[in-house]
């Protein structure tokens, strides 16, 4: 008999979609870490060769060259770094703000909880990307400010999710017994409630990464993201716009990169939900 944990991993690997998602995400991390090694022309991040500009794909430049004559593939590999850095930190910060707020508001009842969730709802009353645009415009274009504006517009989602989940386990027997045994409130929240609401949070992290990559790309596209020379996929697509229809590769390649990476995180999230979220697992067989 195999241990249930391995059975879960095996099932995850058997599901082609989840496996593909995990592979894409690992591929992104790999590209981001080894960008200087993988890139055929790693110096093209800073150098430009104007004589070589807007060349279609060839052996030397597999994805063609951009308006500065730099190798597009090399810049895209470094762009994976930019994207991953922005999104991991932004989602991380959003979780660190949102989850504690949701936990506290869900655990206690009273006007403080009410206030916290009202504030979260006000943030949610503006579409996320609109809020991120307003904040990053105020702060000015830089990678730090992109991270900040994405985190500031994303935390309420985590607060609301953690709040709802906390409320639903708050009255379970294991929480009541922990309280009856005299555990302090922080101990109950961190050691008893948090592990039991972790599954939906982990699932949402993967899907949230996809959403955040798309939003970061929009900020880059609008020129609100990283400064001009930074390799960033959204900004590349914006630069490429004036060279349509001739330089089709210039628009297409970074867009495909965004597409595959976001799809990877979404598939991974769906796969994780199937194995982690017990409420759906119960109906899993029926849902097919």
């Amino acid at each position: 008999m195999t241990k249930p944990r391995f059975a879960v991993i095996r099932r995850f690997l058997r599901d082609r979609a989840s496996f593909l998602g995990a592979a894409i995400v690992l591929g992104l991390v790999f590209c981001a870490i080894f960008a200087p090694v993988l890139a055929p022309h790693p110096n093209d991040i800073y150098d430009f060769h104007t004589a070589n500009r807007l060349k279609p794909p060839s052996w030397d430049n597999p994805f063609g060259t951009d308006r500065m004559g730099s190798d597009l593939l090399s810049r895209m590999l470094f762009g994976a770094r930019t994207t991953l850095t922005i999104c991991v930190i932004a989602v991380g910060v959003a979780c660190l703000i949102g989850i504690p707020i949701g936990l506290i508001a869900g655990y206690y009842r009273g006007w403080v909880s009410e206030m916290l969730m009202r504030i979260a709802e006000i943030f949610l009353s503006v579409p996320q990307i609109v809020l991120a645009i307003a904040i990053s415009q105020t702060l000015g274009p830089s990678i730090e400010n992109v991270v900040l504006s994405l985190a500031a517009s994303f935390w309420p989602f985590w607060a609301r999710l953690a709040y709802a989940e906390t409320r639903s386990v708050k009255n379970e027997v294991f929480v009541e017994s922990a309280i009856a045994l005299g555990c302090s409130a922080p101990r109950v929240m961190l050691l008893h409630i948090l592990p039991n609401i972790a599954s939906p949070l982990i699932v949402r992290t993967s899907i949230g990464m996809g959403v955040t990559i798309l939003n970061a790309a929009v900020l880059g596209f609008l020129g609100l993201g990283a400064p001009p020379t930074t390799p960033e996929w959204g900004r590349m697509i914006n630069e490429a716009r004036e060279f349509l229809p001739d330089a089709w590769w210039y628009v297409t390649c970074p867009g495909l990169a965004i597409f595959f990476v976001v799809m990877g995180f979404n598939l991974l999230g769906d796969g994780l939900r199937d194995i982690l979220d017990p409420r759906i697992r119960r109906g899993g067989a029926r849902r097919g």
């Binding site: 929009v218 229809p245 979404n266 598939l267």
Partner: peptide, 17 residues
Amino acid sequence: VSGLAIASFWLAMELQL
């Protein structure tokens, strides 16, 4: 799944193209 992963500004430009 694909529809949710496409950046709409990119899709717009590809459709234009």
